[in-house]
Amino acid sequence: MTAHKESPSQTAGPYVHIGCTPSVAGLSGMYGGKDPGRTMVHPSLAASKIALTFRVYDGDGEPLKDAMLEIWQAGPDGSFNQTDGFENWGRGATDAETGLATFETVKPGGLPDAAPHVLVWIVARGINLGLTTRVYFADEAEQNAKDPIYRLAKDRATTLLARPVEAGYHHDIYLQGELETVFFDV
């Protein structure tokens, strides 16, 4: 038996940016002007940099323009060991005009029992408990097919696939509807 219960979640609300990405809220001078999690790739690793972009759609098909996303991923070697020039954690807001969230990162490596993947956590007004999903890469079909968690999603697994685009990869996340993204309770 545990002595305490986990603190219950509450929505991050529409003003999550004040606390998590102050410059997005207009508090440009907070924390030395550096939003936490903004920089994942340092200059020494710049050659490997890709853009991983997201949009998150509500049940009306409208992109969320007030969400905050965090990603957590392995480095190029597939592990969470320290990689010089790389931070495994990133945080960003969906753009207030376009709904696009952009992370400059590197593509994670795979391991024998895990295809390359990125953990994504989404909070926003109207989301009572942060939503967790994973991104896999559409051009890694062979590895994806062997990944136990990708396989767990069965016929909905394609909702986890980011597609290659010029600057890297883009992924659309659907909170509802026919294309509803697979979310995980882990």
């Binding site: 049940g59 009306d60 409208e62 926003a124 939503l131 509803e180 697979v182």
Partner: peptide, 11 residues
Amino acid sequence: LRSPKHKPLSY
């Protein structure tokens, strides 16, 4: 409009 309808999958 922001609540997934499917139950989250556990692993």
